[in-house]
Amino acid sequence: MFKRLMMVALLVIAPLSAATAADQTNPYKLMDEAAQKTFDRLKNEQPQIRANPDYLRTIVDQELLPYVQVKYAGALVLGQYYKSATPAQREAYFAAFREYLKQAYGQALAMYHGQTYQIAPEQPLGDKTIVPIRVTIIDPNGRPPVRLDFQWRKNSQTGNWQAYDMIAEGVSMITTKQNEWGTLLRTKGIDGLTAQLKSISQQKITLEEKK
C-alpha cells in the first residue's frame, strides 16, 4: 500500500525546468507551479508516452532531478554507511541512485490517469530550513484521497528550496528505503546496493492501464 502511495505522490513532485522555475526561495510556489507544469506535460505528451513509456525517463531527467536534492536524499538512505564509504564508492552510488530515480519516478508518472491535487495554504517560513507541505491527491475514479507531506529543505548556501522526502501515513519514503535496503547494505555494503540500483534502473517502464 505504501509503495502505491509513494508512486501516486511522485506525480506531483516533478519540479519546473530552470527556464520557467518559480521563486526558488518559496517552496509553496515551487510546489504549486511544479504540480501544474507536471500535470500539463503528462496530459499533453501522452502520444509520446504511450508510444514509448521510457520517454518518461527524459521527462524526469529534464523536469524533476535538477530540483530534487538527489545527493542529500541518497546520503540519508545510506545512513551510517555513508561515512564509511570511499569517495569513489559515493560517486558510483550517487550515479546509480540518480539512474534509479529516473526509472522509479518514471514508473510513478506512468500512473497518471487524470488525477488532480490540492496544496495546503502557504504558511510563514520564518527562519525554518525544513518545511512540510501537505498535498491532497484526488483520484477521478473514486479512490479515497491521498494526503501527503512533502519535505522541502532550504539550501544554506543559495537560499533555494528543494524537495527531498515524502511522508505518507506517518511513514517517510527515506525511512522506507532504509528499511528495504538495510539488509543488503549490511551483507554486501554500498557496492552491493550500487549494483542492485544499476540493475533496477535497467527495467523498462510500463504503463498502468486505467481501472
Rank of each mutant, 00 (worst) to 15 (best):
residue 143 R to L: 05
residue 109 L to H: 13
residue 148 L to D: 02
residue 150 F to V: 04
residue 126 G to Y: 15
residue 185 L to F: 05
residue 182 G to Q: 15
residue 146 V to Y: 04
residue 36 Q to P: 15
residue 6 M to D: 01
residue 54 D to V: 08
residue 88 A to Y: 12
residue 173 M to D: 00
residue 211 K to M: 10
residue 163 A to K: 05
residue 186 R to T: 00
residue 14 A to F: 14
residue 6 M to K: 02
residue 93 Y to A: 04
residue 90 R to V: 04
residue 36 Q to M: 15
residue 138 I to H: 10
residue 8 V to W: 15
residue 92 A to C: 13
residue 3 K to W: 02
residue 92 A to M: 07
residue 60 V to H: 01
residue 198 K to V: 11
residue 76 L to M: 06
residue 166 M to A: 07
residue 112 Y to P: 03
residue 195 A to K: 12
residue 34 A to Y: 14
residue 156 S to F: 03
residue 126 G to D: 11
residue 53 P to G: 12
residue 8 V to E: 00
residue 5 L to M: 06
residue 154 K to H: 10
residue 2 F to C: 05
residue 84 S to M: 14
residue 178 Q to T: 07
residue 128 K to D: 07
residue 190 I to H: 08
residue 23 D to L: 13
residue 150 F to I: 03
residue 188 K to Y: 03
residue 148 L to P: 02
residue 211 K to H: 13
residue 65 L to N: 06
residue 157 Q to Y: 07
residue 206 T to E: 08
residue 60 V to I: 11
residue 127 D to H: 05
residue 211 K to F: 09
residue 63 E to V: 01
residue 199 S to C: 11
residue 174 I to W: 03
residue 8 V to F: 13
residue 172 S to T: 06
residue 183 T to F: 09
residue 130 I to E: 00
residue 137 I to P: 05
residue 34 A to M: 15
residue 200 I to Q: 08
residue 83 K to W: 01
residue 187 T to H: 08
residue 129 T to S: 12
residue 133 I to W: 02
residue 92 A to P: 06
residue 70 V to Q: 10
residue 134 R to N: 02
residue 64 L to V: 07
residue 49 I to Q: 04
residue 52 N to W: 02
residue 47 P to R: 13
residue 174 I to V: 06
residue 179 N to K: 03
residue 211 K to A: 11
residue 210 K to F: 11
residue 128 K to N: 07
residue 211 K to T: 11
residue 181 W to L: 14
residue 147 R to D: 02
residue 82 Y to M: 04
residue 125 L to R: 11
residue 9 A to W: 14
residue 127 D to Y: 06
residue 91 E to K: 06
residue 91 E to Y: 10
residue 13 I to N: 02
residue 75 A to Y: 00
residue 110 A to R: 09
residue 147 R to C: 04
residue 71 K to G: 04
residue 142 G to I: 07
residue 46 Q to K: 07
residue 46 Q to R: 09
residue 98 R to Y: 12
residue 99 E to L: 07
residue 84 S to A: 11
residue 94 F to E: 05
residue 105 Y to H: 04
residue 55 Y to T: 14
residue 164 Y to T: 11
residue 192 G to P: 13
residue 130 I to V: 06
residue 149 D to I: 05
residue 104 A to R: 02
residue 134 R to W: 00
residue 66 P to A: 07
residue 107 Q to E: 13
residue 90 R to P: 01
residue 8 V to N: 00
residue 175 T to C: 03
residue 9 A to N: 00
residue 145 P to E: 06
residue 112 Y to R: 01
residue 198 K to G: 11
residue 101 L to F: 13
residue 163 A to F: 00
residue 116 T to Y: 05
residue 11 L to C: 06
residue 206 T to C: 09
residue 117 Y to P: 03
residue 125 L to P: 09
residue 147 R to N: 02
residue 37 K to Q: 08
residue 16 L to I: 10
residue 29 K to L: 12
residue 51 A to W: 06
residue 27 P to C: 10
residue 74 G to L: 00
residue 40 D to Q: 12
residue 120 A to I: 15
residue 98 R to A: 11
residue 192 G to H: 15
residue 62 Q to P: 01
residue 149 D to V: 04
residue 179 N to G: 13
residue 123 Q to W: 09
residue 65 L to H: 07
